[in-house]
Amino acid sequence: MEILYASCVGLLVACGVFLILRSRTFPVVLGLTMLSYAVNLFLFASGRLTLNKAAVLGYSSDYADPLPQALVLTAIVIGFAMTAFVVILAIRGRADLGNDHVNGQVPTNNNKGKA
């Protein structure tokens, strides 16, 4: 289970980083989303991966660490809000700048170097 979990997180981070390094805003936003999924999984695992442990205290003598669950919940909420914001910003950037390049202009050979 650990190997499967770890490779999931690793693969998501790798995809996320690759997409964030793209030059258009849409892949970048997708990359950020993937990175935040990976982070959520990772945070969840910081309480150790176990089977058959109760999530609620008092129903079992064995219980899972509740803190990572709280942290993940917070991280999901914040990540969701931030993703919504960056999507709106990317749309506004597309409208204001006339293209969806992160630098505000599509680099071509004849206008390279202009800021």
Binding site: F85, L97, V102, N103, G104
Partner: peptide
């Protein structure tokens, strides 16, 4: 210009 700077800052 502001939108561009903000986009990079946010990312």
């Amino acid at each position: 210009h502001n939108t561009r700077a903000a986009l990079q800052y946010v990312i």
